Amino acid sequence: MTDVPTAAPPTLAEGCAEPPATRYDVALLDLDGVVYVGPDAVPGVPAALATAREAGMRLGFVTNNAARTPDEVAGHLSRLGVPADPADVITSSQAAASVVAGLLGAGSRVLPVGGPGVAAALRAAGLTVVAAAEDRPDAIVQGYGPDVGWPQLAEAVVAVRTGARHVATNADATIPSPRGPLPGNGAMVAVVRGVTGQEPLVTGKPDPAMHAECVRRTGARRPLVVGDRLDTDIEGARRAGAASLLVLSGVTDPATLLAAAPMHRPDLLSADAAGLLTGHPPVVAADGAWRCGRWSASVAEGGGVLSLAPAGPDPRVDQVADDGLDGLRALCLAHWSSHPDEGVPARVVGADAAAADLLTGWGLLTTATRR
């Protein structure tokens, strides 16, 4: 049997023998689901980021959450043990305000829909904030806010219907929370779009402007985007030409990762942002399978099913300690190499009880079966 794949392998295959904190000079960190979930820090992440800083890595914070001002975000981070200055924070409200000012000119009238961070960013960009559709806004800027409800959405609908440009800070359908995913700005944007029939201009991630601004502020030469969302963080990194680290502490789960489209496939993978401090193993093709650490993944049963099995020692892939995700890395390469141009949901089986237990632990219970 020949080695796979026939196409060039995805970049996850390369790994990173050294800790990313020593290879990359700046981490461009998403916040919700990466540094914190709700009001609380992801366990262990503040200490990990402090260690990354000690290793010489600088931190920038790039968030699609438009609800708060950079000062509020920096204060929250500092209280969680991640010291931050407002200048270290780029919000999607700032990106939207810059786009609107560029399109419509300083002083243009804008109706904010969202948390206080939206209006603050508009004022800082020299725009005129108005309170209602009757004020004849030139645009509305819609961003996440926990108190957004029918009155604000109604004003937005009326304003768009009477000619205002609809600008959205992001289209994230969900936000992470301690109770699981909750409706994000994209869900609210869909309400306005559905009623008006007008497509909004979306300015947040994955548009590369936010990452580019953070690179400009930090002077990064080798940036690494760290995020929990495939369609914003990982795609945004690819569009900005930066490397990416996906963490599983937010909204993306292993099944979603396996089904990722090419633009959504990360370069590195870890359970959380502590992955900045450890090496990442390569994934190598051998004998019709993909090997990572002590796990092997192959395409079985006519190409429709993936099989995960334990594998013996191999010096090419045993140089980095197993962080519990080696099997998932192998599965990703096996599946993505079979579908190089599209994202396709995966069916997975375990070759033995140990493999089935691992798959079950990753939340693949419905497809993890012992063969």
Results as ranks from 00 to 15, higher is better:
Pro345Ile: 08
Ala330Glu: 06
Gly304His: 13
Ser337Ile: 03
Arg291Asp: 14
Ala321His: 12
Ala334Asn: 06
Arg347Leu: 13
Val305Met: 02
Ser307Thr: 15
Cys292Val: 04
Asp318Glu: 13
Gly302Ser: 02
Arg291Val: 05
Ser337Ala: 15
Gln319Cys: 03
Ala346Asp: 07
Ser307Ile: 13
Ala330Pro: 05
Leu328Asp: 01
Ala346His: 07
Gly304Val: 01
Asp326Pro: 10
Gly312Ile: 08
Gly303Leu: 09
Ser337Lys: 09
Gly302Met: 13
Pro315Ala: 07
Leu308Trp: 10
Asp318Met: 03
Ala334Gly: 03
Leu331Lys: 11
Val348Phe: 08
Glu342Gly: 01
Trp290His: 15
Pro315Asn: 07
Pro310Phe: 05
Leu333His: 13
Asp326Ser: 15
Arg294Leu: 09
Ser296Lys: 03
Val299Phe: 09
Arg347Met: 05
Asp314His: 11
Leu306Pro: 03
Leu306Ser: 01
Leu328Phe: 12
Ala321Val: 12
Val348Leu: 14
Pro310His: 05
Ala334Gln: 00
Glu301Ser: 12
Gly302Arg: 11
Pro315Leu: 02
Ala334Pro: 05
Cys292Trp: 03
Pro310Val: 02
Val299Lys: 05
Pro310Glu: 10
Pro340Val: 15
Val317Tyr: 05
Leu331Ile: 01
Gln319Ile: 05
Arg329Ile: 04
Ala330Gly: 11
Pro315Arg: 04
Ala334His: 06
Asp341Leu: 15
Ser337Arg: 03
Gly343Ser: 08
Ser298Pro: 00
Gly302Lys: 02
Val348Met: 03
Pro310Thr: 14
His339Asp: 09
Val317Gln: 00
Pro310Lys: 03
Pro315His: 02
Ser296Ala: 13
Asp318Leu: 01
Val320Lys: 08
Glu301Leu: 11
His339Trp: 12
Val317Lys: 00
Pro345Gln: 13
Trp336Ile: 07
Leu331Thr: 01
Leu328Gln: 06
Val299Gly: 06
Pro310Gln: 02
Glu342Thr: 11
Ser307Asp: 09
Ala300Val: 15
Ser307Met: 11
Gly312Phe: 07
Cys332Asn: 05
Trp336Phe: 08
Pro313Cys: 03
Arg294Lys: 06
Leu333Ile: 14
Val305Gly: 02
His339Pro: 12
Val305Pro: 02
Val348Asn: 10
